[in-house]
Computed example of a mutant assay.
Amino acid sequence: MGIAIASFFSGTMLYRCQVLVASFHKRNLEVPTDSTLLYETHDKHSAIEGSRKLEHTEEFKCLDKAAILSDVEIKSGEFSDPLRVCTVTQVEEFKILIRMFPIWATGIIFFAAYAQMSTLFVEQGMMMDTSIGSFTIAAASLSTFDVISVIFWVPYL
C-alpha cells in the first residue's frame, strides 16, 4: 500500500504541490469576493491537456490565493511560473483531492481489514474438515461465503 501511495503521489506531486506553494507565496494577499478576478485561461478548455475547466467553489478559500494575480504579475504580464500562479481549475482539482481524502483514508482501513479477514478464512479452512458428505470445499473458496452472506443480508438491514 505504501508503494502504491508513493507512486500515486510521485506522478502528481509536483502538479498538486504547485497550488500549495503558490498559495503559500501569496498568503498575505486578500482573496477577491468576485471569483472572476481569479486567474484562469481564456481558452474553451483547461490549460491541462485533455481536461475541462472547473467552476470555482467556496470551500478551502485559502487555496484560492494560488489563483490571485499579484500586482507584479499583472504589470509584467508573466503568468508562466507554476509555483507563483495557478489557474482556478488547478486549485479546484486540488480541492477535490482534499475533499476525497477522508473517503479514501477510511477505504484503506476497510480494505486492510477485509484482506486480513479473507486470509483468516484460508488459514481456518486449512485446519478444518471442509468435506460435506462426498463433496469437499477448497480452503481458498471459503471467503466466498462471507461475500455471499453480505450480498444476502445487506438488503434486509
Rank of each mutant, 00 (worst) to 15 (best):
L97Y: 06
F60A: 07
I151K: 04
S70D: 09
V19T: 12
T119R: 07
S149F: 07
S118V: 12
L54D: 02
S46W: 08
V31W: 02
F145V: 04
R16T: 14
E78T: 07
F111K: 02
D34C: 07
A138F: 03
V91L: 11
L20Q: 03
A139N: 03
S7L: 11
Q18M: 12
A138M: 02
I96A: 13
S7H: 07
V147K: 03
F145N: 03
T12A: 07
V91W: 01
I108P: 00
K53C: 04
W153K: 07
L83M: 15
I108M: 11
K53R: 12
F135A: 05
M127K: 05
S46A: 13
Y39R: 15
L38I: 14
T12N: 03
I151F: 10
S51H: 13
T12S: 06
K95L: 14
H56T: 07
R84A: 15
W104Q: 10
S141N: 09
T89A: 11
D64F: 01
E49G: 05
H56W: 11
L157E: 02
W153M: 09
G133W: 02
W104E: 10
D129F: 04
E123D: 10
E30D: 15
V85Q: 02
V21A: 13
M117L: 13
V150F: 08
L83V: 14
L37R: 14
E59W: 01
I74K: 12
A6M: 06
F110A: 08
F152M: 05
P82C: 12
E123K: 09
V31C: 06
P32H: 12
F9R: 04
T119P: 00
V72D: 13
E73I: 02
G2D: 08
T41V: 15
I68R: 01
Q18A: 12
L69W: 00
A105K: 08
L97P: 00
Y156R: 10
F79L: 13
N28K: 13
L157H: 02
A47L: 14
I48D: 09
I3C: 08
E123P: 00
Q116F: 13
